[in-house]
Design a protein around this nucleic acid. Structure first.
Lengths: 234, 234
DNA sequence: ACATCATGCTTGTTATAACAAACAACAAAG
DNA sequence: CTTTGTTGTTTGTTATAACAAGCATGATGT
């Protein structure tokens, strides 16, 4: 079973890892769910070996947890851990935004402005799924422009840890904002080369969203898919 | 019927991972050396599968690097990556020190003072290897007292990445300080509850040591053993 | 002598089968 | 009804073989 696709030379287990990461960031896996090798292998159309490699990689990164029998389980992040993640995220992403403001370029401003407009349009059309994609792209475009790969890598790791629960309530949060979002101010601060303001706006953006998330926690500190959610069909 | 003979059956790949880590810490692998699956498999008396799993785990943690052909290579940290690590370390460890100052306790001050005195004594006696242990303990005592396990974990990972080359030249750096170290000021700032000063002192401590390390780099940006040592000629 | 290609070896990747431990369901014994 | 033992299934683990890409070596042609 060989394919003629000679374009994709990346190892199969690395592609599988990317697909699992996407599924996590998109919230397609339930928190607490145990991912079995054979089910994922059938899902991706491979054998268990690449899936095993991908899962090992993600567990080592802390993106997935090692449950009993060394089974990979989707982290069910509770309030305590969420507060810690937010703490470090505010520190690293704020620093990245500050660095991005000092390394600004016209191309960066143009790209961010385009994504900003796309986000506004998607909110108006209530296409929250694709909004989340663009929103994530918006943030990481800033972090990438900081020019520090290690910093980018660590921020991505933190997003992956909160990924499963982020998609639970963020759509409600986004439509409840009604325009008072920090994204516009972030772009303006970067364009003006004002690092401290960019950092402050990023931190406010993170912490306000986190407070909303924490307000959705149950008595056990677990964020559950919820009551405020007017779920979309798509 | 339960038998007592089932003491501990850790997975084979996990044991192999421990052996590789030991070999790394013992310096039995040269920086830049590529570790082949089959050679390690023969060395440990297993097949390639457990070795592959162990290496994948270590690469994901940043302990090993992924070279060409996805081969595992012992990290030869160059100046570029070192600068990035220092950048993030200053950010995270500075933040941890600031947090520690706000959560100070008499027990913490007493513990830090004791380690400080121990460090001074070890320097006078030129016992640099044990000094490095106490020094590391001193730092991580502060970071642990910040009360944020995730922050602690990420800082520890950054120390692991620079671990091998740190022991190359730090002893020379320590004896060259001749008393102008920041550790005393850090303890004083934490004791006074002065978070910003504690953060600034930690950052200065990190960056000054980093500058010394970077001054030891060769023309390729690699930190080499004995670059500033009078003993070894090469 | 130098460039080019063939050949064989090395190495990471993937699929597959066999295996042991854990788990669930159910029957039998108290 | 509860407990215990059995059986079948599921699941992660490990070994092995086949495979493709890279790399070194050396023969060949100009």
């Amino acid at each position: 079973m060989k394919t003629f696709e000679k374009i994709e030379t990346a190892p199969l287990w690395n592609r599988v890892r990317g697909q699992i990461k996407d599924a996590l960031l998109a919230g397609r896996f339930e928190p607490g769910q145990t991912l079995t090798l054979r089910s994922l292998a059938e899902m991706f159309g491979t054998s268990v070996t690449p899936v095993r490699d991908a899962i090992n990689h993600l567990v080592a990164q802390g993106v997935l947890e090692a449950g009993p029998r060394n089974a990979a389980v989707v982290p069910d992040v509770a309030s305590d851990l969420l507060k810690e993640i937010i703490f470090v995220r505010a520190e690293l992403e704020g620093r990245a935004a500050r660095e991005a403001a000092t390394r600004k370029s016209p191309e960066l401003i143009a790209a961010l402005s385009a994504k900003l407009e796309s986000m506004r349009s998607l909110i108006r059309q209530r296409q929250l799924d694709t909004y989340l994609d663009v929103h994530r792209d918006f943030h990481f475009t800033i972090y990438e422009s900081a020019g520090i790969p290690l910093l980018y890598e660590m921020i991505e790791n933190l997003w992956l840890r909160t990924g499963p629960i982020l998609t639970y309530v963020i759509p409600d949060y986004v439509v409840s904002l009604r325009g008072s979002d920090h994204h516009q101010k972030i772009v303006a601060a970067i364009e003006a080369g004002d690092g401290p303001t960019a950092e402050a706006e990023i931190v406010s953006d993170i912490e306000e969203a986190a407070n909303y998330l924490l307000s959705c926690a149950d008595e056990y500190g677990r964020i559950r898919r919820g009551q405020k959610l007017a779920h979309h069909a798509g």
